[in-house]
């Protein structure tokens, strides 16, 4: 899922400067799990904006705002409130915010920062393990992704900067290369690490991504 964090109220107010009325859109999936854009957070945001002198014209939680046609349908159902509003604040990831922006004609603002594609370990513990690089290589690394989990995306071994098993960039994070080593040692496959891995094909992950599977129906 997409991990988000709510922007500060100051930043939100700064973006929406001059806009008096706001409609709030939340997300029933990822942003609900992250506690950044569910029912509760939308209600809290509404209260804070009212306290700052804004008129909140309404709010809705869309099951998954990244589903564009569903988003359009829900916004149409809330047409009356939205027509009266100068701004829509979206408490969801950047993808959800953009589908709202494309479906609505007024100014749409992100209420969250999108951080990463994350795994949920346990309650409110999110970890980035894949950055959708376009060409998965983890088969060569014991199933651990060096592209994402090594801060320098090194494919041929550690940078040498880790201390006590932690990454040089942030000592709260494990050094991916030590994890890969330990794992491959356990499975007797250290030999696989001795070959020189070629430079990554970055063209496979060129943005913006687009996939249209023409042959697949329903």
């Amino acid at each position: 899922m997409i991990i988000t964090k709510q922007k500060s109220l100051d930043e939100i107010l700064g973006m929406m400067e001059g806009k008096k009325s706001v409609f709030i859109v939340g997300c029933g999936e990822c942003a609900t799990t992250c506690r950044t854009g569910g029912e509760k957070e939308a209600a809290e945001m509404s209260a804070k904006l009212i306290e700052k002198g804004k008129t909140v014209t309404g709010s809705v939680i869309i099951t998954a705002p990244c589903l564009e046609l569903d988003t359009r349908r829900v916004l149409r159902q809330n047409k009356d409130a939205i027509e009266k509003t100068e701004a829509i604040l979206v408490l969801a990831c950047g993808a959800g915010t953009q589908s709202v922006a494309e479906a609505a004609i007024c100014n749409v603002y992100p209420g969250c920062d999108s951080l990463f594609l994350g795994n949920v370990f346990r309650h409110q513990h999110f970890y980035e393990k894949c950055s959708t690089c376009g060409e998965c290589v983890i088969g060569y690394y014991g199933g651990i992704c060096p592209v994402t989990r090594c801060s320098k995306s090194l494919l041929n071994g550690p940078c040498g900067g880790s201390m006590q098993g932690k990454c040089e960039v942030d000592n709260k994070k494990e050094c991916a290369w030590i994890m890969i080593y330990e794992r491959m040692k356990k499975t007797n496959s250290l030999d696989n690490l001795t070959k020189v891995f070629p430079a990554k094909n970055h063209s496979a992950g060129t943005s913006p991504g687009m996939v249209i599977n023409a042959g697949i129906r329903g």
Binding site: S151, K152, S153, L154, L155, N156, G157, C159, G160, G161, E168, V169, D170, V196, F197, P198, A199, K200, H202
Partner: peptide
């Protein structure tokens, strides 16, 4: 490889690391 920009005096810089040291050597 080089230290990560986050540890330097331009921590906002985009880290490149297109190649690693082995690949550049090659």
């Amino acid at each position: 490889t080089g230290d990560h920009p986050k540890l330097g005096n331009h921590p906002d810089a985009k880290p490149v690391f297109d190649l690693d040291s082995v690949q550049l050597t090659k």
